[in-house]
């Protein structure tokens, strides 16, 4: 067993564990697609054969927050549905990540009025923002890869 730089035994072992867990988590993402609006069409395109999201390991949507670890907020969030978003986010178990898919979920999109929330990050913390109205499927895959990099480098709290 190697002695770490600050004299604490096992640091190198923990960092290897971090990397192994990160590798495992990033390639087996279970999404919860919280689909509201037009971006849902691009989500359907991404999930299907042409721009397959399954080859990145994220191909299985779980429609229960208890069984998923990635919340895809797809489309405009109105004030009427904010309690539902909060409840779904709180029901998910750790570790969990949130992706704001599309311009409306990131910052409100073209809708700046009495009914819409300017970005879902005013309700729940967001990890990756995917811009576009709606984003091309390639942009979504790029966002997913960035999220995977983020998951890989996340430190485990012990």
């Amino acid at each position: 067993m190697e002695i770490g730089s600050d004299g604490i035994p096992g640091v190198a072992l923990t960092s290897k564990l971090d990397l192994a867990l990160g590798w495992g988590r990033k390639y087996s993402l279970f999404l919860y697609p919280f689909v509201t609006a037009c971006c849902g069409m691009e989500y359907m395109s991404v999930a299907c054969a042409h721009y397959d999201i399954d080859r990145f390991g994220a191909g299985l949507p779980r429609f229960s927050p208890r069984q998923s670890d990635l919340l895809f907020v797809v489309g405009t969030i109105s004030h009427k549905i904010t309690p539902v978003v909060q409840i779904v986010y709180e029901q998910m178990t750790e570790p969990k990540w949130v992706v704001a898919f599309g311009a409306c979920a990131s910052a409100g999109g073209p809708y700046d009025n009495y009914a819409t929330v300017q970005g879902v990050d005013t309700i729940i913390p967001v990890d990756v923002y995917i811009p576009g109205c709606p984003p091309r499927p390639e942009t979504v895959l790029d966002g997913l890869i960035k999220l995977q990099q983020k998951i890989q480098t996340r430190k485990i709290e012990l």
């Binding site: 004030h79 904010t82 309690p83 909060q86 929330v117 990050d121 005013t122 309700i123 913390p125 967001v126």
Partner: peptide, 9 residues
């Protein structure tokens, strides 16, 4: 007229 308290991202 927000329904839940909005947080500062």
């Amino acid at each position: 007229q927000p329904r839940v308290e909005l947080r500062k991202p």
